[in-house]
């Protein structure tokens, strides 16, 4: 490996090929005859299930691939991305699934190389629990809060100050005693709610769908 050569564009191909082999020949590493891709077994052990083929293989491949982030894209899954990298990864997923590796094993294989970053769905471990539990917790707490507020609002005394007319709560068919004023209240209701004559459907005997 001590030879030197100048970088010349006119080098013939054959010469180059020879030189490509040379450094290695000098090094003389052992050679095996077949190309071995990294064996997933080495990382995630034996397949959890039986080998898969056909439609099942395609379906499972698409499902697992959609859980993997394409590392060179912006948040797209390996299943969706047209990038070469994603296509390669999808092929790798298909290989794994075909051999019978489970979803979790396949994901772990990629996770070992790319880190947790590659999983689009955070696995349930450690601090990740938060991202799954927090919305549920909010739903429960919020639900109780709404119920509590509803109870409190139901008990709240009607504030009479704001009532410009006696029917402070809209939708009631109560009317002020003053006949002139009652006329305006009816017209206002007609305008506001679209009730003919300002009378609610309930009071006209049409059922209570719209309002009461």
């Amino acid at each position: 490996m001590t030879f030197r050569h100048t970088i010349a564009r006119r080098f013939v191909l054959a010469l180059t090929l020879l030189m490509l082999v040379l450094p290695l020949a000098a090094q003389a590493p052992e050679r095996s005859d077949e190309i071995k891709s990294p064996d997933p077994k080495w990382v995630v052990g034996d397949p959890a299930g039986p080998p898969r083929t056909g439609v099942e293989l395609e379906k499972e491949t698409a499902r697992v691939a959609s859980l993997l982030r394409c590392p060179v894209c912006q948040g797209l899954s390996v299943n969706d991305s047209p990038a070469t990298m994603a296509q390669n990864m999808k092929r790798q997923v298909r290989d794994l699934v075909a051999k019978g590796y489970s979803e979790e094993q396949a994901l772990l294989y990629f996770e070992r190389a790319y880190g947790e970053f590659v999983r689009l769905e955070p696995p349930l471990r450690g601090v990740n629990w938060l991202v799954w539990a927090a919305p549920v917790a909010l739903l429960v707490i919020g639900g109780f809060f709404v119920l509590f507020m509803m109870k409190r609002l139901q008990r709240a005394p009607k504030n009479v100050e704001v009532a410009s007319v006696d029917s402070a709560t809209p939708g009631r068919d109560t009317l002020p005693d003053d006949e002139h004023l009652a006329h305006y209240v009816l017209r206002t209701r007609e305008l506001a709610y679209g009730w003919p004559g300002g009378l609610s459907p309930a009071s006209r005997g049409e059922g209570g769908e719209e309002s009461r």
Partner: peptide, 16 residues
């Protein structure tokens, strides 16, 4: 949050 706390990059993507 995770990166700030654990220093580990992770993703929350469309499946979530």
């Amino acid at each position: 949050v995770v990166e700030a706390v654990k220093g580990v990059q992770m993703s929350v993507g469309s499946p979530y």
